[in-house]
């Protein structure tokens, strides 16, 4: 078979597509949200401003080994971070804030800061619909949870309602 100029052109197009495809994916921003959730056995919200978590998240928390019966959203912050970028000082409460960096390919670094001091550093993947939660015990047999989830997960959870 003779090699025509059209074949060379198509070959060039193929090479270009293969070359730009990974970079196109890497350019996507991380669109996620961070939530501070209060876990308690009381059905009544400790504050009228605190609303119950959505069904999808509630299901995940109820199935976890930390079995509180009710979960309320204390605060919610949207995250939109480019690959290689970061957002510092995502305030969730007076004592709790986050430094979030997007490492690319769904991986992120989260620094949990409590009362102005670094508590822990986590590197996690939010691939697919994975939800990452950091939790700890609080007063009066209650608990706090910092939930990080991608926007796609939020959409999926609202559709499942």
């Amino acid at each position: 078979m003779k090699i025509r100029s059209t074949h060379i052109a198509y070959g060039f197009l193929l090479a270009c597509l293969l070359a730009i495809a990974p970079s196109l994916r890497a350019e996507e921003n991380l669109k996620a949200e961070a939530l501070l959730v209060w876990g308690t056995d009381d059905a009544q919200s400790p504050d009228t401003k605190f609303i119950a978590v959505d069904e999808s998240l509630s299901k995940k928390l109820l199935k976890s080994p930390y079995r509180w019966k009710h979960f309320f959203v204390v605060n919610r912050q949207s995250l939109n971070i480019p690959a290689g970028g970061s957002r510092k000082g995502v305030v969730l409460s007076k004592d709790c804030s986050l430094d979030v960096a997007y490492l690319g390919e769904d991986r992120m670094e989260i620094k949990l800061i409590g009362k102005g001091k670094l508590v822990s550093t986590h590197k996690e993947s939010l691939a697919g619909q994975c939800v990452f939660i950091i939790g700890g015990a609080s007063e009066n047999d209650t608990a706090w949870f910092v939930v990080i989830r991608k926007s796609a997960t939020i959409v999926a959870s609202s559709q499942s309602k």
């Binding site: 196109l24 822990s120 691939a127 697919g128 994975c130």
Partner: peptide
């Protein structure tokens, strides 16, 4: 190109790192 650009549907629990202060 589509295959490369489409994120995987299955959750890939990649290796995690944690450091306590």
């Amino acid at each position: 190109a589509l295959l490369i650009m489409t994120p995987p549907k299955q959750v890939a629990m990649k290796e995690s790192e944690m450091e306590l202060a």
